[in-house]
């Protein structure tokens, strides 16, 4: 009859994020305090502290770094002494011109779509948890896992540039140099990964649980 499920928080328990050991809280009021795990002695909170604020801040930093990452060249190809700079997007354009569609799709997904979806998605999750508007914990927690999983794959372009710089080193004939965008792009990827790590998916369920409790009390 209800969607209410017994949670660790409701029983005054807290789960250690490192070793997954349940810890007893000393008192009801202690749920904001730092806890030391009885098993691994790591310090943690019942919910990640200031989760939404941290996620928002890292996410904003990622968004800012993403702008120069797309404006500056990420790679400069020198042939016979003449440099040809290319940005992330113009690099993808070259792949399309050469007819290498699968590679163009992979790079476009990893370097443009994934960072953008991560940034927009995390903003959305923070907004939904904060306001509780149209919150669907089952759907949203799956979405969060997808974001978390996709994170590292954005490093693809950085690794490609690193490899090309090292391999294509034929002196005057042809060589590849990295451009300034690679710094900003790497920062974008790392900031979004930290932002995703700062988000606590249990907040999605907490908010929902609160509303269900409220509804039940009103029904009775």
């Amino acid at each position: 009859m209800s969607l209410l499920i017994n949670t660790a928080k409701a029983n005054n328990l807290a789960l250690c994020p490192q070793c997954h050991k349940l810890n007893n809280l000393r008192s009801e009021a202690a749920n904001q305090e730092k806890i030391q795990c009885v098993r691994c002695h790591g310090l943690f909170y019942q919910r990640k502290a200031h989760s939404l604020q941290y996620t928002l801040a890292w996410n904003l930093a990622a968004l800012i770094a993403f702008i120069p990452a797309n404006l500056y060249p990420i790679m400069i190809i020198y042939s016979l002494g003449i440099g040809d700079p290319s940005t992330i997007l113009s690099g993808i354009g070259q792949f399309i011109d050469q007819g290498l569609y699968p590679i163009a799709v992979i790079i476009f997904t990893a370097s443009i779509i994934v960072p953008l979806i991560k940034i927009i998605g995390l903003f959305l999750l923070v907004y939904r948890v904060h306001t509780g508007v149209r919150l669907r914990p089952d759907k949203h927690s799956k979405f969060y896992h997808a974001l978390e999983f996709l994170g590292p794959w954005s490093m693809l372009d950085v690794f490609v540039v690193a490899l090309l710089v090292a391999v294509v080193e034929l002196g005057f004939v042809t060589s590849v140099a990295a451009g300034p965008a690679i710094n900003y792009f790497t920062l974008t990827v790392i900031f979004t990964m930290i932002a995703a790590n700062s988000f606590d998916p249990r907040l999605l369920w907490d908010k929902n649980q609160d509303r269900e409790t409220f509804k039940e009390e009103n029904d009775n």
């Binding site: 949670t7 660790a8 928080k9 409701a10 050991k21 007893n24 927690s141 999605l204 369920w205």
Partner: peptide
């Protein structure tokens, strides 16, 4: 007794 229970790390269900 915390040895008797486990909690889900994603949604806190006990």
């Amino acid at each position: 007794d915390t040895k008797q229970f486990i909690a889900c790390e994603q949604c806190d269900a006990l």
